[in-house]
Nucleic acid binder design. Structure first.
Length: 296
DNA sequence: AAAACTTGCAACCGCGCTTCT
DNA sequence: CAGAAGCGCGGTTGCAAGTTT
């Protein structure tokens, strides 16, 4: 802490101000939490419950602000916090909810049990925004969500399935809620039809017409709160989308690359349009997670 | 092998809203 | 009703770990 303050004079003055504000002359700790501090905080919350964080910190004998204690508890120590990578379903849900609500991280997190607003915010800033930049898209745009949903997510799901010891049978598609079911004959036929139709615009309008195919409950259910189950059409379309064969993805991408504008001086929108999954950008995006080479 | 660079994420900060006194 | 305290949110920073050169 002192080293950090020494490196930044503004921090020094801020720290002094905070010291003056504190009635208690005891110097407050900052930076990473120790195991002992975690234990003290956890025990104190077990005894007194959450809330009144300042007094809780004092009661626990922690040289931390109440704010810091609250943050540590909510983002790290709370028992129901889910650790590890976000599932494809969670990632897609984040994209969709962000397109709806913007940077309302806590609101988004409320729909992903076990995930914190901080975690989602970090995910968004480090992964999503980066990939959106590479695609020259708005990260909250429907177009970007469609790209993720149609090409990134199926591969991610497929890769996860391949990595798991008990791989799912070919006829099994994954729902957004994590459950699986087999494709019906109708769904398989749709998948084939889509596979045969490699125009990206057709794909987009058929599979992912923006929010138009969302009815009153556009988002998947997580746990038992907030969202109704998605419509049958959602289910059908998404599962068909997930179930497309890798050769179909390749065909789609080839077609998408071919649709890039041919004008010498394209407009801005045309630039964005033409960069849409163009060779280099697509490679950047998918190579990022080693997905593009997957199953090639 | 080591320096430089990048990435991911825990933690901090300021601000605004709500509740309490 | 006003000021203080508590709380929660979104933005930002700092650093350890990983990767590249």
């Amino acid at each position: 802490m002192k080293a950090a303050i020494a490196a930044d004079p503004s921090k020094e003055s801020r720290a002094k101000e905070e010291e003056e504000e504190e009635e208690d002359p005891v110097e407050l700790r900052r930076g990473p939490w120790t195991v002992e501090e975690d234990g003290l905080l956890t025990y104190s919350i077990a005894c007194h419950g959450e809330g009144h964080w300042n007094s809780l910190a004092k009661a626990a004998g922690l040289k931390r602000t109440g704010k810091s204690c609250r943050l540590r508890w909510l983002n790290y120590l709370k028992p129901d916090i889910k650790r590890g990578n976000l599932t494809p379903q969670e990632q897609l849900l984040i994209l969709e909810l962000h397109s709806k609500w913007g940077n309302r991280w806590s609101k988004i997190a409320a729909n992903l049990p076990g995930r914190t607003d901080n975690e989602i915010k970090n995910y968004w800033r480090t992964r999503v925004q980066k990939q959106a930049r590479q695609l020259n898209m708005e990260s909250s745009s429907q177009r970007f969500i469609d790209a993720i949903r149609c090409f990134y997510m199926p591969r991610l799901v497929e890769k996860e399935q391949n990595n798991s010891s008990c791989s799912l049978p070919n006829s099994t598609a994954m729902n957004l809620d994590g459950s699986t079911y087999s494709l019906t004959t109708h769904q398989t036929a749709m998948a084939q039809q889509i596979g045969n139709n490699s125009s990206p615009s057709n794909l987009s309008s058929t599979l992912l017409p923006g929010t138009s195919y969302h009815q009153t409950s556009p988002y998947p259910t997580f746990g038992e709160t907030v969202y109704d189950t998605r419509t049958k059409m959602d289910s059908l379309l998404l599962d068909v989308c997930y179930h497309m064969d890798s050769s179909d993805y390749d065909a789609e991408l080839t077609a998408m690359s071919a649709t890039r504008g041919s004008d010498d001086q394209p407009s801005d929108s045309q630039v964005a349009e033409s960069n849409w999954l163009g060779d280099e950008i697509a490679d950047d995006m998918w190579n990022l997670d080693d997905l593009w080479q997957f199953k090639k």
